[in-house]
Structures are given as C-alpha cells and as structure tokens.
Amino acid sequence: MIKIDELKKNYGKLEVLKGISTEISQGEVVAIIGPSGSGKSTFLRCINMLENPSDGKISFKDQVITDKKTNIMKVRENVGMVFQHFHLFPHKTVLENLTYAPMKVKRLSKAEAVRQARELLAKVGLADKESSYPNRLSGGQKQRVAIARALAMNPEVMLFDEPTSALDPEMVKEVLEVMKSLAHTGMTMLIVTHEMGFAKEVADRVLFLDEGLLIEESAPDEFFSNPKSQRAKDFLEKVL
C-alpha cells in the first residue's frame, strides 16, 4: 500500500534520514522505534509530506506522492495523523473539531458530518464531551478526540507520532486502548512509539531506526526476544 524507496532527508548539512526503504501493506500495524534523534518522527512526517523529502520516492497506492505533480492535499485526505501534542483546534468545540475537515474538504453536509462525528466520539468514549472546548479536557481525552478527528476523514492509513509521549502516565492506557481497537478493525497504522509493551502486543512488524538508517525490520516477538543487531540490543537493554 505504501512503498518507500531510498528516502533521504537533510536539514542543511545534517542528514536525518540516510536512505530508508520499506513497504507497508494494507491492514498492517507497524511500530517504529529507536533512540531519540534517530529520525523516526521525520520518517513518519515524510509519509504525508509534512516534511519534504530531500531524495527518494514514496508511493501510496501506485501514486508517487513525492512527485511534484501529485496533489498532496488529496493524498492527505486519506492519511490521518495524530500528533504528540494533539493540536486540537482550541477555538472549536470537540464536535466542531471533528466536523470541520469533513465539511470543508469532503463537502459533507452538516447533518452527515455531525452524525458521523457523534458515532466516532462514542467509539472513543467521549460522547458526553461534544460541546466542550479542548482546554476543558485532560490529555488523554484530547488525544482520543484527536484520533477521532483524524478518523472523521475516513482515512485508509493512520500515522501516530508518539501519541502517548506527552501524557501523564495514568492516561496512557486509555489512548492505547483506543488505538488497539482501531488496529482490530484492520486499519493500516504506522506508530512511532516508546511503548514497547504496546508495540509487542499490537504491532505486526517493528522497524528499528538509528541515526537515520533502518537497522532492523522484523516481527515483534523476534525483535524483542532476539534482536539481530548490536544497536538494537543496546537500545532494548536501556528501555526494557
């Protein structure tokens, strides 16, 4: 579904991604892990072109999105993204956060957008918060709204950029639960995370990045019990 070929990204002289190639198939849940500064967030942000790759090719369902002629806005409609710091629209209520893009971008009628938004809010367990403003919500609630907001566009892929890293420990679980049930629906998911337990339990595959390179790519059981590379061994020793 997504094909990444020799993806490179530099900021001036700093090489953040040094040529990463991989493929993600439909319905796959992929955890991207690695030490900080390894380029995992940049890698994820290249997939919906929030970062402009310096070199390499990314295709999404046979469409080369790194091609300048591709309408990236159209691609983004199908690629949901959840950020570490939520980025909910603070001047809109929870319901408006969910209905805004479907109405604006997909030209859904208000009634249809609201109906769909309420359904999603019920799914993430926040049906009673639809008229609250984001500032009234806890971190965990904000992130669940952010997930619902991305899902409101009916994306085919969801990108998660450290979705639980900004949360208080007691709120991590509620967000992971929502993501877990999303994985069970067959959604294709790419998750940059530090939650090793979650990666082990939910992911179909683990990508281990270090210093801008894809060092290891394997099934979670294999990766966590028997990492091949020394760098992965060192990393796991520190975090587990």
Partner: peptide, 10 residues
C-alpha cells in the same frame, strides 16, 4: 495548528 490542518487535507 497549521500542521494539523494540512494533515487533514485542508
């Protein structure tokens, strides 16, 4: 905020 809007295809 800008990134969130862009990511939604706005």
């Amino acid at each position: 905020q800008r990134e969130a809007a862009l990511a939604l295809g706005v």
